[in-house]
Amino acid sequence: MIAWIQIGVPARAYFVRKRWDGGGAHLVHLTEIVRLDAFAEAVWDQLDGRSDLDAIGDRIATIFPAIEAELRDALIAHHIAAFAQRGLLDTGGR
């Protein structure tokens, strides 16, 4: 949650690539691979460095309209924090 609060406009790091195989989507950073479920992938796709958390939440709401707002926001926060902790977000140089 702390990481989420610190990153107001989160952006994917340039050195991370998203790939897809028959088993689903995953992030690759050199030798590190992070599997994504559909929700996590949708969150990742919104991290364009221009959208703040409200905008991200609004777009995720259109993709997953059945998820109640409070739970949805908590899940978004969880995933962004996890990406940040794994070093997958842009922190201005790495």
């Binding site: 340039y14 050195f15 690539r17 790939r19």
Partner: peptide
């Protein structure tokens, strides 16, 4: 390099999508 890698990712993801 950073911009080129972002652009590369965009194109590859579009292809996969």
């Amino acid at each position: 390099v950073e911009e080129a890698l972002r652009f590369s990712s965009e194109m590859t993801e579009r292809a996969q999508d």
